[in-house]
Simulated scan of single mutants.
Amino acid sequence: MPFFPPLADDSGDGVLFRPQASTFAENTDSLFWLITWISIVFFVLVVGAMGWFMWRYRHRPVETFSPDTPSHNLPLELTWTVIPTLLVIVIFGFGFTGYLDQRTPPVDAYEVRVIAKKWNFLFVYPDANFKSSTLYVPVDRPVRLRMVSQDVLHSFWVPAFRAKWDIVPGRDSIVWFTCTEPGEYLYECTEYCGKGHSDMIKEGGVVAVPLEEFEDRLREERLIALESIKEDPLAAGEAIYKDAGCSACHTVTGVNLNCPTWKDLWGTEREFTDGTSTVADDDYIRESILQPDSRVVKGYQNVMPAYRGQLEEIEIMALTAYIRSVSEKGQAELAKYLDDVAGPDDAAAGDAPGGTAPPAAE
């Protein structure tokens, strides 16, 4: 139990804190309130004493002072030294043990890979052959997030789990937690990362599912995602353009940022830094997505990350369809290409994922 009940809004959610939904939450909140109440008590004591001294020794018209004004009081000095020292040791002890616990994930924790980029988070489930901008976690099962950044410094935070950690470019960052309550929770980036920083906040972006339903939920979400691509490849391509971070560098308005615009890209001649050139067709777009460093457009730097292993073939085709749709030459055969994207069911769905969440250890 916290030392002081948090304030609540009309919906009953905490204003000072989100509802506790992980094994870390109660200890974290209790330590916060311990520090808060220590601060309140000493604030009252110090300010109260200061006010009393101001009144007791206020200036009077006729004032007499004792020549024996005290200049040293050993018991008092020991008191205001020993008590704060002991309190600091207690706070450090609680904080350090809690830190060690949060930095030592169990060996059997279920791992999700997190890719942070301007400006979204992508959650990859290697065992399930599934990825999403929504984080799905099993309840009562330790979950380890292995996080990397593709560009700048980010920070991943789930307030209800009291779990937060910076994601530094070029370094694996690990954070773990055990969710205790099914439901939907907010996640956000807490490190200012550029003009789209506010887009990296998602209410309901973390979905906690009962352990026995977790594997089926991942399978269902994956099939829904693939089916939605087949039903409307253009809309899916536009969504991928935004979710995968393409919009951060490539516009569809004809304005060139630090990467070429996609406006009228398809079917045009592209010149590269090595002196070669080619026509921007489907094969070129696919190669640029999977191996962007193989051929860099003249006048630009090699700053695009590779999406190999992040996008499935049908997602690449949907993205290509979207690039065609914003290009005058690409629109000529767009209808036929869309039919190819929405091809046979078995070509899109692939093998259903399995073995996503091993049972909890006995």
Rank of each mutant, 00 (worst) to 15 (best):
R295V: 03
T276Y: 14
W262I: 10
A306N: 12
T278W: 05
P260Q: 03
D283I: 07
W262V: 07
N258R: 12
I285L: 15
G267F: 04
Y284S: 00
Q310W: 09
T273I: 13
M304K: 07
I289C: 04
V279M: 10
R286W: 09
T273V: 14
L290T: 00
L257D: 06
R295F: 06
G299E: 03
R286V: 02
Q291R: 15
T261H: 00
Q301F: 06
E269W: 14
T261Y: 03
W262E: 03
M304A: 08
W266F: 14
M304L: 07
Q301L: 13
S277G: 06
G267N: 08
T276H: 12
Q291S: 15
Y307D: 07
T268P: 03
G299K: 11
V303S: 10
D274R: 09
Q301K: 11
L257K: 14
D264C: 02
T268A: 07
T253Q: 12
D281C: 10
K298Q: 14
G267M: 02
G309S: 11
T268F: 08
D282K: 10
Y284N: 02
D282N: 10
G299C: 04
G275R: 01
V297M: 12
P260E: 05
P292V: 00
V296S: 07
A280V: 05
V252Y: 03
G254T: 04
F272N: 01
S277C: 12
S294V: 12
T276P: 03
N258C: 00
E313A: 07
A306L: 06
E312D: 04
T253K: 13
K298Y: 14
D282C: 01
D274A: 11
R286G: 01
W262D: 00
N256R: 06
Y307L: 08
I316A: 02
L265T: 08
Q310K: 05
Y300L: 08
Y300P: 04
C259L: 14
G267C: 02
D283Q: 04
W262M: 13
G275Q: 03
